[in-house]
Design a protein around this nucleic acid. Structure first.
Lengths: 201, 201
DNA sequence: AATCGGTTTAACCATTTGGTTAATTAATTC
DNA sequence: GAATTAATTAACCAAATGGTTAAACCGATT
């Protein structure tokens, strides 16, 4: 039989189920169903739920972590970098709307495990801070610290996607398109909000 | 026996366990152990896991939702209101560090259920928007819309607590006190960041 | 076509888990 | 203080769930 790559089919299904339901809420049977295979095949390929989940976590981190660093280390104008990183990151997350809440849940469920994976990803958060620090010394921006600035940026990009299901209901009468438009606006407005807050006056 | 109020003891334990582990990760036995009672007593008082969880959700929402509205509807100067709501909300959340990620997870797990509870809480988000809108018409602030402004404010308060376990490791070498200080700074700096971003220039 | 290795499945197993029952103990009422 | 009601527990149950096993299947090799 072997119509396609079974392992890839399983991983795709596992990602979808784990990210939507969380590790505890996800059932191996549900993953098998989604991949249209027998449950025993899951264990044939990945041994255990823990092992499978770890692979999902690693692939997810490798997929979503580097984007920020990448843009920050380019040699664009600093303000344009902010515009780009905000827009790109909001785009990426809004196409994967369960990722933010999933990751935040996992951050609290197993912080050490996540942090180890993050280290393995080779991301260099200190390089981002250095870039910001340099800009700070050039007197083009006015911020308290690179850490505050960076967290502010992440907050404004990630939270509106993580909280979407409630915010869409509470602010837009559960109008899907209204929130889509809202997110679309945020791709530019969030950067302008940040820039106004940090520009030297 | 009946040393204290058993029902309250159970609820306290249930809150702690549910909020730390999430609905799926929480086990009834763990709640019983934490409350130091027999598992059957849980069902004697609350019938089922679902029922118990609903009570926890309701109490949690009633505890954490109204604070924002309260401050916003006071008749302080608008800028002082922002300073106060930001400081108070960051304080409240940092004393209950699992709440943000728990709520965000729940928002995605069961948005309709959560929204219904929110409605029952009597919170009037539209009144907050009206307050902001009025300020907008008085030309004292420069924002895109009350919705953007409100989400920005929530993002900057909530995300840094929700992501703390990872951020503390990634940014401060897992130094507890360093992150405590960081949060303490945010109580004032976040408001100033927002104010700079919205003040008419 | 017989065989051999990797792949897939149906059936099964052991543990965990939410929930129940029947009996015991503590309070309350008469 | 006996009778009645409420609170609490140990033991048990059934379903769900992660994981295993042995057999079947399939494609390639000889």
């Amino acid at each position: 039989m072997k119509e396609k790559n079974t392992e890839a089919k399983i991983l795709e299904a596992a990602k979808a189920v784990f990210i939507e339901k969380g590790k505890d809420g996800a059932k191996m049977q549900a993953i098998a169903d989604k991949a249209k295979i027998n449950k025993a095949l899951l264990h044939y390929y990945f041994r255990s739920k823990d092992k499978l989940f770890n692979v999902v976590i690693e692939e997810t981190m490798f997929h979503f972590l580097p984007k920020v660093e990448e843009t920050f280390l380019s040699d664009d104008n600093f303000f344009d970098k902010i515009r780009k990183v905000v827009s790109d990151y909001i785009s990426l997350l809004s196409e994967n709307p369960f990722i933010p809440a999933f990751m935040l849940h996992e951050i609290n469920r197993n912080p050490d495990g996540l942090f180890n994976v993050m280290m393995k990803s080779g991301i260099r958060i200190d390089l981002i801070f250095t870039t910001i620090q340099k800009e700070l010394q050039n007197n083009t921006i006015n911020i308290v610290s690179p850490q505050h600035f960076f967290i502010n940026l992440l907050s404004l990009c990630i939270f509106p996607i993580a909280a979407r299901p409630l915010m869409q209901r509470a602010m837009f009468f559960n109008d899907q398109k209204a929130y889509d438009d809202f997110i679309e606006e945020r791709k530019t407005q969030t950067a302008e909000f940040i820039l106004k807050a940090i520009k030297v006056s």
